[in-house]
């Protein structure tokens, strides 16, 4: 049994380990390890396209995760006091957002936005006072943030709501009985209890957006995110430079994830699940 478990862990981690190992290969060959070197990291970090793709991914992940966390937390808090049709509608929307495949979300967002833009752009051109400076709506940062924000908001709502549901209600009542304003109660009682879930939700949302390929592939327009860059490089062939970029991306997500896990597990009461 123990040997079996060990074998599965090796299966899960050896491929990642090999990528990391070969990113330090001094030679170009993908099959032989000829010596230790960090030259591929240097190459990757001085590649203008890699740096730009990283900046795009980072900015999109930060913005979509921040928006998803704020709006998702607000929704999760409000949903606890909502019943009836609104509640059912929200539950259905969250369910659909999580269940519909990313590829369908990507396609749907692409054609919906392009259609809306095609319809709005002439309108904008007609009403804009300065003809030369008319803004053109197009796919890019906005569509990436909006599309990533959708899935991650559903994620934040699920995580925060689980925490809100497990919260000790008597503390809130006690606070109100002792004369605290609703805002005071929120700040001093509710927020400290749900803060770990909010933070973990933010980290997960960031990781999802940072790693997402399929939705970005459709809605990125002329922008290139890091996963899109990696995908097109892989199409051109396996290179040590891709190994180095991949290792860096994995390291960033692993750090964020382990932090998120530690926060969630640490805050969880051992008696409850």
């Amino acid at each position: 049994m123990r040997i079996y478990a060990l074998a599965v862990y090796l299966f899960l981690y050896i491929p990642i380990g090999i990528i990391a190992l070969f990113s330090f290969n001094s030679g170009r060959a993908a099959s032989q390890f000829t010596g230790f070197s960090v030259q591929w990291y240097g190459k990757a970090l001085s590649n203008r396209f890699v740096v730009e793709a990283f900046q795009t991914s980072f900015a999109v992940a930060l913005a979509s995760a921040a928006l998803a966390t704020v709006f998702g937390t607000m929704a999760a808090l409000a949903l606890q006091s909502v019943k009836g049709r609104v509640r059912v509608a929200f539950d259905a929307l969250i369910y659909i957002a999580v269940m519909v495949p990313g590829i369908v979300i990507g396609i749907a967002t692409l054609i919906a936005l392009v259609t809306v833009f095609d319809w709005l752009n002439p309108l904008l051109a007609a009403i804009w006072p300065v003809a030369e400076a008319t803004p053109q709506l197009s796919l890019g940062y906005g569509s990436l943030i909006a599309a990533h924000g959708l899935f991650t908001m559903a994620l934040v709502i699920i995580i925060v709501r689980a925490r809100v549901a497990g919260m000790d209600r008597s503390l809130i009542e006690a606070s109100a009985d002792l004369g605290a304003t609703p805002f005071g109660t929120f700040r001093q009682v509710t927020l400290p209890q749900i803060a770990p879930a909010i933070l973990a939700g933010f980290l997960l949302a960031f990781t999802f957006s940072f790693d997402d390929f399929i939705i970005a592939f459709f809605v990125a327009g002329s922008k290139t995110t890091l996963p899109i860059y990696i995908f097109s490089s892989i199409r051109r062939g396996v290179t040590p430079e891709v190994n180095a970029i991949g290792t860096m991306v994995l390291t960033i997500s692993l750090c964020l994830l382990i932090t998120a896990q530690a926060i969630l597990q640490g805050g969880r009461k051992p008696t409850k699940n």
Partner: peptide
């Protein structure tokens, strides 16, 4: 939760 792209790669 890590990049499926890099894991497939």
């Amino acid at each position: 939760w890590t990049s499926i792209l890099i894991r497939s790669y």
